[in-house]
Structures are given as C-alpha cells and as structure tokens.
C-alpha cells in the first residue's frame, strides 16, 4: 500500500549550512547550552528536540524507506514561520525555503511534494509567493500558523489570500507552533501541557474560526487541511452548532450550522488513538482524512503506515483512502 504523508517538517539545509559556516540565517543563529541545541533569533529560542530535523534529503529518504513512507509532503518546522520578522527578511527567507523544497521535489519527484512558507504579515507578498511557489516551483500549497501576530484568519484582509489559494488549487495546511502562540501557555507551562493539550485546543479553535469566518462559503473550493486531526473540533462540533442556534453573533457570516462545513476540510490522522480516528472518520467522512505523521517529532510503532494498517476498526478501503488515495486525488501525486 502506498503511503503519502501530508504532515512532515523541515528545517532547511540553508540554515544548517549557514550555522556550519559560523553564520546567521536571517538573524537566526545556533546556540549550545548544557548539551542542548537551540536556534535563536528574531525573538525566539527554538529547542532542537529531534536530531532528524537536521537530516539532508538523502538521510530523510533513508528514514522514509525505513518507515515505509513513499511520499512526504514537506513543510517548514513551524517555529521558523517568519510572520513576526521584518517583512523584507520574511519574504527572502520564504523564497529560500521554498526554493530548497522545490529542489527536493525536482530531484526526487516520486518521493517529495512541498508546501510553501509565506510572509503572511504582508498579504500581497504572501499571494505573490504562493503564486510563484505553485506556478513556477510546482509546490502544492502552503503551511500556515493558527494566528498571524495576534490576528485571526477571519480578519477580512486575509480573504484575498484564501481567494488566491482557491484559484491556484493550493492546499493550505494549518499547523500550530507548539511552543509559541499557544493559548494554553497563558495558564501553564508544566508537564508538557502546552504541546500535548495546547495543540489540540489550537486546532479545534482554528477549525471553528475558519467555519465561523465564512471563508468556506466565500471560497467553496478552497482546500484546507488541519493538523492533528483538527484537535478536538469534531468532538466539540455539537457545541458550535448549539452556539450558532442561540447566539446571533455566531451567525454573522454563516447561514448554515457549523457542522455542515466540517466536511469541507481535510484532517490528518494524528488523533493518537484508534477510537479518536474512528470518530473523526465518522464525523467528517472517509474522503477527508489523510496520513500526517508529524515527522520527525512523533515516534511511531512501527511506522505511520504500519499503525494505520494495524487498526481493526477500519476497512481495507478506508485504509487505502487515508494512506494515499485521498492525497493522490487532492494533490495530483
């Protein structure tokens, strides 16, 4: 069975090469402290918590072979999103990352597809780079954060970006930054909760924000995929529907119940439990769930595809759709 993985991260080689030469990459530098390595700069201190994030494409391919992944849809490691950088640097960095990913997809077209990084603090520049990434570089869309410098995606000035993505048939893959812009950080830093719980809450709120924004009505053919199975969105959808019924402020942009939009969105299968995945499939439909492994940050037993194939509550046809058919159709790969 073919395995296409929509959720795989990349810290670009251009960054590691700069570090190896003792240089910065757009203000990001390498630091070692107490045997821990960090990427530091632009107000961030990013712990390098998997050695694989340094892998060259060749090393990555060997790892994919070992876990039986045929195609990785590669996107940037989200702490490197440049939304808060100076705009010119963010544009340049985005171009460099996208060129590097495009190089991987050209050299190994059967193994890699790519999602662009965009300088979304400047919507016009983001649209221009998305167009270049899709039309010139052959990337399949872009990866986006949950929030842009405190602004939510329902802000009207982002609508042209969604319109452009719809026009380009570009996939927008939404993924939070587990150590930053996480609502749960306001409450606790303990026990890894910002990542293990916070991410689930972020994804759920993102699904809700997209639905209530009306973007899915404005752009009916927009292709959106949300990481980590959309967090708790499918489980909490009934509360969104009830809120929509009883509160006029929930109905300002949408005339149908929120749950009627959840099948317009794709979700990766990273629900961390078979029961959770089964519930997701039954909620959003088997055509909307795809493999997303969170490479290289999640250890799979034995592998992402192996886990999927081991599940007893899914039919063979369902496994094939999740494993490759849905993404083959969606991305044309």
């Amino acid at each position: 069975m073919r395995h296409i993985d929509v959720h795989t991260h990349l810290a670009p080689q251009i960054l590691w090469k700069a570090f190896a030469n003792g240089e910065n990459w757009h203000g990001m530098r390498h630091e070692v402290q107490d045997d821990l390595e960090f990427i530091v700069g632009n107000g961030k201190r990013i712990l390098i918590n998997s050695p694989k994030i340094r892998y060259t494409p060749e090393e990555r391919l060997a790892d994919m072979d070992a876990e039986g992944t045929d195609v990785q849809v590669v996107s940037i490691h989200t702490p490197l999103f440049p939304y808060h950088w100076e705009t010119a640097a963010a544009i340049k960095a985005s171009q460099e990352v996208n060129d590097e990913i495009a190089g991987m997809t050209r050299k190994w077209p059967d193994r890699f597809a790519g999602l662009a990084t965009l300088p979304v603090q400047d919507v016009d520049a983001a649209i221009a780079e998305l167009e270049r990434a899709v039309k010139v570089l052959g990337l399949k869309g872009a990866e986006l954060d949950m929030v842009v410098n405190g602004q939510n995606w329902d802000e009207p000035h982002f609508l042209p970006l969604f319109k452009a993505a719809e026009e380009l048939d570009a996939l927008l893959f939404f993924h939070p930054q587990p150590q930053d812009n996480i609502m749960a950080l306001e409450r606790t830093l303990r026990y890894g909760i910002p990542n293990s719980v916070g991410v689930v809450l972020e994804d759920a709120l993102l699904v809700a924000t997209l639905i209530f924004s009306g973007v899915l009505d404005e752009c009916p053919n927009l292709r959106v995929c949300v990481a980590h199975g959309g967090g708790g969105a499918c489980f909490g959808m009934g509360r969104l529907d009830h809120g929509w019924q009883v509160r006029s402020e929930a109905r300002v942009n949408i005339q149908k119940p929120p749950s009627s939009y959840q099948k317009q969105i794709y979700y990766d299968f990273l629900t961390s439990s078979e029961a959770g995945l089964r519930f997701l499939i039954d909620s959003v439909g088997i055509d909307r769930v795809v493999i997303g492994s969170d490479w290289p940050f999640v250890g799979w037993d034995p592998s992402p595809g192996g886990w999927l194939e081991s599940l007893e509550s899914l039919s063979q046809e369902e496994k094939e759709k999740i494993s490759w058919r849905n993404l083959e159709t969606l991305l044309g790969i």
């Binding site: 929030v147 939510n152 329902d154 609502m183 749960a184 306001e186 409450r187 606790t188 303990r190 026990y191 909760i193 293990s196 719980v197 689930v200 809450l201 759920a204 709120l205 809700a208 924000t209 209530f212 708790g232 909490g236 509360r239 969104l240 009830h242 809120g243 929509w244 509160r247 402020e249 929930a250 300002v252 942009n253």
Partner: peptide, 25 residues
C-alpha cells in the same frame, strides 16, 4: 478570550478548552 471574542467562541470552544486544561493539570 485572549485570542478571539467573536462568534461565541470564548464559550463554545473556550469552555471545552478550559475544562480540558483542568483535567490535564
């Protein structure tokens, strides 16, 4: 609330988010 106040989301997502944090903590 700190992220978005629109669409009744502080209640319809926020109540569930806060309860999840209570369980986890």
């Amino acid at each position: 609330d700190a992220r978005i106040k629109r669409y009744h989301l502080p209640n319809s997502v926020g109540n569930l988010a806060d309860r999840t944090l209570t369980f986890a903590s």
